[in-house]
């Protein structure tokens, strides 16, 4: 479970205070699928970075799995990130010189994953995202959708409970975007907690709940009445 209470994040920008989050409270149950929407600059990424323990709140508390992380040491936060949280970014952030396989292997060194199980695990994950034939390809030899699949496989490496996705389909065409949505839905069905930022109302409707932000506060917490499902035939070959 993720619970935030009165979360405030203020940036100092050349002496001017930028209030990115102004007292946000939110509870996300385990296994939930939440979409975060709002205009550009309303604090969506700030929220996700705080949830991912990449940044510290100015005030307020953040609990992950019942533990208050706002007072944890940088080392403990790093361990938490490596074990409980998976990140998916809009721009993929793959290592350009490394193969799909090597990119998926990357998180293992920081979590101390048993070395003899790394290779099979990475191959299994690449198979899971449908890239078993692209194991040795480098990012520039892959399409955008395929690159994001590699990034998702990497996010899953240490089997985290929470997946944070900041506009995961923002750089993709609508077909690849839907395929990524299908993958995220499937992960959610298999028990992962998903928190996804998106600009698209349609994509947000794949989630069970949409949190609307404006200027650092929540203006609406909407339960999706009719959830969309990304229709992908189970036997279809992913592009």
């Amino acid at each position: 479970m993720v619970r935030i209470t009165d979360l405030v994040k203020t940036y100092q920008l050349e002496g001017i205070e930028v209030r990115a989050l102004r007292g946000l409270s939110l509870t996300v149950d385990p296994g939930a699928f939440i979409a975060v929407m709002g205009p550009s600059g309303c604090g969506k990424s700030t929220l996700l970075n705080l949830l991912g323990c990449l940044d510290r709140p100015t005030s307020g508390t953040l609990e992950i799995g019942g533990v208050d992380v706002s007072s944890m040491s940088p080392t403990d936060l790093a361990i938490l990130r490596s074990q409980k949280i998976g990140f998916v970014f809009q721009t993929f952030h793959l290592l350009a010189r490394a193969s799909a396989f090597a990119n998926v292997m990357l998180p293992f060194v920081y979590s101390g994953y048993p070395s003899e199980r790394r290779k099979p695990r990475a191959l299994e994950l690449l198979q899971y995202v449908g890239l078993q034939d692209r194991v040795r390809h480098r990012p520039n030899q892959l399409s955008g959708g395929q690159q994001q699949r590699v990034a998702i496989a990497r996010a899953l490496a240490n089997d985290p409970g929470i997946l944070l996705a900041d506009e995961p389909t923002g750089n993709l065409d609508s077909k690849s975007g839907l395929e990524i949505m299908a993958l995220i839905e499937r992960l959610n069905r298999e028990g992962k907690t998903i928190i996804m930022v998106t600009h698209s109302r349609e994509l947000a409707e794949h989630a069970e709940r949409i949190v609307h932000l404006l200027d650092g506060v929540m203006i609406r917490d909407e339960v999706v009445a009719e959830r969309r499902v990304a229709e992908v035939r189970p036997d279809a070959e992913p592009a």
């Binding site: 991912g52 990449l54 790093a78 361990i79 990130r81 490596s82 290592l95 060194v109 920081y110 979590s111």
Partner: peptide, 14 residues
């Protein structure tokens, strides 16, 4: 890359 490694759990000493 450094940012990414940190996001993936790299600590400062790493």
């Amino acid at each position: 890359e450094i940012g990414l490694r940190k996001a993936l759990g790299a600590r400062e000493p790493d």
